[in-house]
Design a protein around this nucleic acid. Sequence first.
DNA 1: TACAGTCCTG
DNA 2: CAGGACTGTA
Length: 613
Amino acid sequence: MSSGGTIPPPLVQFSQANSFNPSALSSLFNGSQGQNENIFAALMARNELNENKKEKETSPDFNDSFKQELDRSSFKEDDNTQNDLESLEEYEIEKPEGFTEETSQKPENGNERHSAMSSSSSSKRKRFHPQRTLTVEEDSQDDYDEGPPVIDEEEPQDNQDSDDEIKEERHSTSNRSAQPEFNPFNMAAHLAAQNVNMNKFREFMEAQKRVYSALGNQQDNELQKEVCNRLLAKFSQALKDELMNSVQNSIEKVVSHFNAAETEKLLQQARQIQQLRQHQLEKQKQEQLQQRLPFNLNPMFNPMNMPYNQNPLMALANQNLASSSSGMNFQNPVMTMAKMNGGIFPNQPTFPGLNGFLGQQMSRVRNEDGSPRKKRSKVTDSVRGPRSMAVRDNGQSLQASARSSPAANYFPPTMVPHPLYNNGRFDGASVDAGSPSSNDDSEYFDVGQSTTLTHIHLRKAKLMFFYTRYPPSSVLKNYFPDIQFHKNNTAQLVKWFSNFREFYYMNMEKFAKQYLAEGITEPEMIKVNSDHELFKILNVHYNKNNFIQPPETLPHVVEVTLREFFKALRDGRDAEPSWKKAIYKVIQQYDEHIPEFFKSPAFMTQLEGSGSA
DNA sequence: TACAGTCCTG
DNA sequence: CAGGACTGTA
């Protein structure tokens, strides 16, 4: 047997709550007064009928409509196995609406009701409407069809019916004559077991019985009837009210419970969704921020080692470089210079507080991907990629084998076990390996020294390159007071400058060749100022965002370098091995003292806050 | 041999 | 920018 349609939760609960034990009920009402009770019940039923004609009328309607409903929804009878009483009860509870809705249909067809009764209770629950209290008369098509208020106390059927009615009234449930074994009292008991005031009912029943018996002794049937009617009317009314109240309360309770639960569920879901959305929004926001201003992010406040995405400015710079380098439409330097009047440093030095108003140790970042790199990592990785911002942790350049080693805590044999190694705080390797980093914080916040070079340090080094192309390592160390140097990070810093030189000379050679290609014959024809294309390229590369104003001497140094390359190329010295070294020597002469403010922590701070690359 | 710097590559 | 091979020098 299919279980019919889905059952609305509240209804289910309700019907469940109303389930009862028929035997218990019968025990309650199984007095010796059985006959009297039956008669009395019949009286009440009649009375009820008289007083509420409409209700009587509706009962058959209901049955009919119910059946129709069943047919319509094509519900199958599902519960032959189920307790008929239960199904009946549920049906009764639900049906009230059926009355009002479909009264017009086949009002008298009581047979249909039977089939309906056997149908699944679940399907009927849909129709549950608490307003309805009386549904009794249904089973006795014969009895109530007449409708007249005549009371036949002697009719056994009536007794049954009346009993049913009583119970129904109490709980808006009804019995079915269709179920021979069904005991109407069971119904009542069931109802009583519910919220209905059973005691009251029983008392009333007792009183009624007494009255009835007394009346029975009298010969005046008329009087008897009258009294009974009155009593019955009162009783039924009271019962109705009681039932209505209790049923309504129950329904309200169930519904409110259900609503509350559902509402809570929905609210929770909504909250979850909202949280997810917010999370996503925040993520997006952060990503956008990172893309826009990767350098604005203070590494100190990036405990999560948030990956930095590609820096558009870097890309732009690279673009410029590429275009300039590839652009063979290099014009006459003189003309170019003439065209460029405007300064390329619209923004003046952005570190007014070089005197160190910030005073304290510059924040240092040690985010370090640190995890044994399989490939080399760069400082820029932190800027462009998921890697941390720190330059390589302690600069241990891992051997190829080491780099490919999956062991997170693997240290290459060449690595010097520097005592501060673990200070690569935030260094991925350290973290992953669970290596101790206990003194990290103290060093980080108190000593103010780190072993990790960050992209800030890189920017600073680039700016220093404007003053010196060949800084001794000793000088470098002095200009990075926040770094605790050891072999590896020193090598790293030196390597930076090596790379700087590489880029620097590469562009010199390129431009020199261009001059040569343009037919320039004398180095004196080459003039370089701050408007020169080459100078701009250099400025973009080493001084992004015009963080500082390039030294006055820089254009001259660039000019000298360019001329040296030009001369070498013009004279064909480039054929010789290591022909550049002579040039390097010359250029080294132009190194100058690096301003002291580079040592200031405030400078680093400004650099950090200067944002764009 | 050790070190510093360059060159090449990714 | 970093890794590594290579070269030159002491």
